[in-house]
Design a protein around this nucleic acid. Structure first.
Lengths: 215, 215
DNA sequence: GCTGATATATAGTTATCGTTATCTAAATGC
DNA sequence: GCATTTAGATAACGATAACTATATATCAGC
């Protein structure tokens, strides 16, 4: 089985990036050695340095090529569910679902990257750019969605997108550590409120007691 | 100057914890060596191991004795400002204020702890407990505040507290990396919405255009 | 096939870190 | 005052990690 050099290089690069993504997500970036990444990719650390120059270079390359974000999961969830209220529940479920599915590991890595960006200007630059794009996309989808279901979000689309994404990230961070602290109804209520979803379009009332107030 | 052993021990312990808090916050836990903590406290690593047994022990002790949380800052901010809208702005300012003040470093450490808790059961246990207490306190204060200013929060006090704290954490995480992405008006709008603050009680309208919608 | 180039493997090197074992000096109790 | 306990200092160990220098395998062009 003979391949061209380009193919060989490209495959190695892909394997290294995939292995890095998986390991970084499951164990945390600092806890993963370059050798571990290389071994998981069926290569050695020499290949990593030939391709990326340093561990940081590997991380930045991974960030650059990373397509799988919060967004993909979210839109998929919305597309599937029917009623607006159910869509919000599906959004939350896709992020916080108890299955140890990939969403969990990815969101963990995303949070770690945000934290790392606070101290690493290179990571911050990449993340800021990606974030702006993600916010734009979210805002556009959100505007369409609001028209369709008759919701009146609290602010303009970009502002609402910022608030939504922040709320989701905050809830998810807490839920991962202390799931009981964030029941699904709480998350859905928060989303529905920011989105200005009229009560009659919200979820069917089996657990509507969670939206009542006891002052 | 002769001191009792208890005093000596207590002072060393305090100095070590203070140094650890400052260094962990500014550089990140993993990036700080035990020797660095000891040196900053005017001691040596031997003292750390005599007191805490391990670096993890130092971290857990720090967590246990940590009084300074998001809450202290928040309530102080509310207490000072006058109008409800201004209070919300003050809350956000105290978290996101551009001053490199201690609030910034502390919130960074808090976020790192939440992340670490996802992979460290001991940290998760401490954090979960602290979190439940913080939520209770927030909920209580929130109920009082809502009555006073005539706000009708979106859910019961505990639910609203959860949503508020999650939103703040998410916004703050984003703001630290990309301040321009989270203008103050956006944060205030989010808080006011979850708190059900009537528009006439919100901030004076110099920048009220930010609360209007362009669909 | 042979040569030059390229991709990856191999084997260090150096530095750092957590931890432990041992030693010293200070305080306590009799 | 002397023995004992205790707080903390000192020095070394062992592991691990990022990175580098060099060797080897693989491919391209002739």
């Amino acid at each position: 089985m003979t391949r061209t050099q380009q193919e060989r290089k490209a495959e190695t690069r892909g394997r290294l990036l995939d292995a890095a993504a998986a390991l970084f997500a499951s164990r945390g970036i600092d806890a993963v050695s370059v050798d571990a990444v290389a071994e998981a990719a069926g290569r050695t650390s020499g290949a990593v340095y030939a391709h990326f120059g340093s561990k940081q270079g590997l991380l930045l390359a991974l960030l650059d090529e990373w397509k799988q974000s919060m967004l993909t999961v979210l839109f998929a969830a919305v597309a599937v569910a029917g009623e607006p209220g159910d869509q919000l529940a599906a959004v939350w479920e896709s992020l916080a679902g108890d299955g140890a599915g990939p969403g969990r590991a990815w969101s963990l890595l995303e949070d770690e990257l945000w934290l790392r960006a606070s101290r690493d200007a290179d990571v911050a630059a990449v993340l800021t750019e990606r974030n702006a794009e993600a916010r734009r996309i979210t805002a556009r989808q959100l505007a369409v969605w609001a028209l369709r279901v008759g919701a009146t979000p609290v602010g303009d689309a970009e502002t609402t997108a910022t608030l939504l994404r922040a709320l989701l990230r905050g809830l998810e961070l807490e839920h991962r550590v202390d799931p009981a602290a964030v029941p699904p109804a709480t998350a859905v209520l928060g989303l529905a409120t920011l989105l200005g979803l009229p009560p009659d379009r919200q979820a069917d009332p089996p657990d509507s007691h969670l939206t009542t107030r006891r002052p």
